[in-house]
Amino acid sequence: MEQKLRSEARALLEQGKVDYIFGYEPGSLKFTTTPLLTRDKNDVDRLVVNPFIVNNLAKFLTELKGRVGIVVKGCDSRSLVSLIQDNKVARGNVVILGVPCEGLIDLSKVEKLVGRERDELDDILREGDKVFVTVDGKKREFPIADVAFDKCLACELPTPKEYDILLGAPTSPIGQKDAGYTAIDNLKGKIPQERWEFWKKEFSRCIRCYACRNVCPACFCQRCFVEETEPKWVEPTANWQDNLLFQVVRNIHVAGRCSDCGECERACPVKIPLRALTREMYDIVGELFDFKTGMDKNEPSLMTHYEKEEAEGLIR
């Protein structure tokens, strides 16, 4: 897959079909990758595809001018389609290099299973639905379901639906739907006050670094309501009330554009389970309006469309 990506990327640059190639290269730390944006065809040999390509690159498209050849996974492709629906990105300006995703490996899960820091691991190898972790010269085997990100366990569309070049054979979901839902199910069993108390506790940890917003491909407002001062919607200091308000309103604002890619949760430095919010919003939107994010670039986006009769039961 990597070889195909490199040759395709080189061809795109050489033929002048794109101005940039946007993909992943190895990061400075073990088992990490970092986004690679280049116009130089000699750089394409640094491109990689492995189970650690976590970033959702669709985020940066709104800031790039010119034609871009972009590497996307299933979830990223849906963010990208949603940006196309909102006219934030022109379809003609992107060449989509689709990666059929087999699920990404969550290093913190590996660390927990092995009981070692990531620096102490010698190698992590993915073969089919098994993952081999080499530590102290010993090879240990884990099923992918144990080490993949929660979002990947619940993923519905690992293969991009919208692409120009698909870099491999389509993959099927890991299909452990329940795993990603545990937190939500636990919450739903509780009474409203307990749920509120839960979120109150979670958001009292929030330091309002806005990493969740900055990493979110659906958050493309030039100016976010949290930074407005006239009127001032939220206090700039981190108190749980405004932290919670910010996150709730952010989730409502990105409803129908959030593809549940889980980047907010991954970026969160204090580990607030934000996917319990995004996933629920994804379900609410699906249930009320039969809408799924980023399925078809020719469909209107959620908030630009309406049906004559819908959701009437909620309004008196």
């Binding site: 307990e194 749920r195 409502i252 609410i284 309406y306 004559k308 819908e310 959701a311």
Partner: peptide
């Protein structure tokens, strides 16, 4: 079409806040 849009927004707001624990 303004009220149709309001309906979509209010419906998700209501559902979502209910999930968060707002009566």
């Amino acid at each position: 079409t303004g009220n149709y849009r309001a309906r979509r927004k209010m419906a998700i707001t209501k559902k979502f806040l209910e999930y968060m624990g707002v009566e």
